[in-house]
Every structure is written in structure tokens, then in C-alpha cells.
Amino acid sequence: MIKPYVADLHIHTVLSPCAEIEMTPKLIIDKALSKQIDILAITDHNSAENVKAVIKAATGKKVKIFPGIEVETREEVHIICIFDDPEKTLELQKMIYRNLPNIKNKEEIFGAQLVVNSKGEFIRKNERLLLTATSLSIEDVVKKVKELDGICYPAHIDRPSYSIISNLGFIPPQLNFLAIEISSKADIYDILLNHEELKNYTIISSGDAHRLSELSTRTVFWIEKPTLDELKLAFLNKNGRKVSLKKHRKEKT
């Protein structure tokens, strides 16, 4: 039976230097439950070192966690990549780490990059700066994600930075993205008025949460169960699966 699942597929943890210290596995899950979010994707910048901790923290809870990464390509475009298995995510991470410049993170400038366990306890710091471009092209990322049976799509295409539209001017059609992401506050019609060519894409909206209050409930997947294959069907609008988008409303936090 097809049911609505509220999803936010773009969440940062304390591993992302720009995220608040409250973005720990347990607090993210508690917040999702209190907002009645059914599906989350954990997508730190260029790294997946906290995904297993969040999945573990969600054991027995009514929220499904997809492991993922927000990759920064050499065009400085952010691409959200999501998988059904943390091992595949770590496979992508391996490729990213081979293609990430070896710059030491300067915490006082960028913020700390913390690896934590499921309880949110500190394990170690990732010393390498994650908040920068890899030498991978968008094509490289799309190809790798396809090999690993994942899903990927361009992030926050309405923003003036780190977006495929701002940096390339358009979405190369041969990339065959199943969907595109707009920010949680973006108006879909504003975007379509300026970029008519986007009307053929499935559009989702995510929180890109760097703090708990930014978790978004705008996107609803109409699917049978929260699996990656079902998400793919919804992106393709097949077999009765679909994605719907609520209007942005100012929420009390």
C-alpha cells in the first residue's frame, strides 16, 4: 500500500565544520521524530564518517536513515549522493578522499569536524579540510554513484553559490539526474519562471540542516516502504509512486 513518508534528504552532522555542535545522531533523530519526519539522509560535506553512528542511533526508532554524502565537485557544485548501504557510501568516500586536496582543517576558521558514536560521544577529529572542492567532475560523481546503485542529484540549485545553475548556468541533460533539490525556503514557481527547462525534473526540497531547527518537512514521498528502490520509483513517477512538495511556511521552532 502506498503511503506518504515525510523526508528530509540533506542533513549535516558535527562532521561538517559548518554544522552546529547540536547535530549529533541522537538529537537529529529526536528532532526528526518530534517533527514526524519518516526518512532522513545524512549528507556531510565530502565524508560519510558519521553515517553508521546515525543509523545505529535510529535502531528501533520510527525513522529510516539513508547514508549519503554531499560531494563538492571541481566545478564547486554540490551533489547529494544517497545509498542503501553504508559500505557503498564509504566506497564513494574512498574515491573522494583520493581526490580531495590535502589541506589541514583550521578549526578556528572553518569549525571542527567531529566523528562521534551513536550516543554523540566524541571519537576523534577529521583533520583534513572537508569544506573544499574535490578534483572530481560532476560526471565522475554521477558515474561512480551509478556504479554503486545510488541516487544523486544537484543540491540547492536556487542558491547563488555551490549550485549547478549558478556555476554552470544550466543542468547538462546528459547527466540524467532523476531529481533536483531546492532549498527549504525556495518557491518552486519562482524557480520555474526563471528556468522553464527544469519543469521536467522531479523537484524535492531539503533542509540542508546545519542546526536542528532547519530540518525540513516539505517533501513527501508516496511509496510502499522506505527503501532506495522506492525513492527511485518516486523520482521517476512510476508505479503510482511520486513526490509531492508542501509550500514553505514559517515554522515555529
Binding site: 566545478e75 586536496p101 573544499t132 572542492a133
Partner: peptide
């Protein structure tokens, strides 16, 4: 306009 290029 590429931050990574400036950094390098």
C-alpha cells in the same frame, strides 16, 4: 570565482 582555485 572558484574558492578552491583561490586556496591553491
Amino acid at each position: 570565482d572558484l574558492l578552491s582555485d583561490v586556496m591553491a
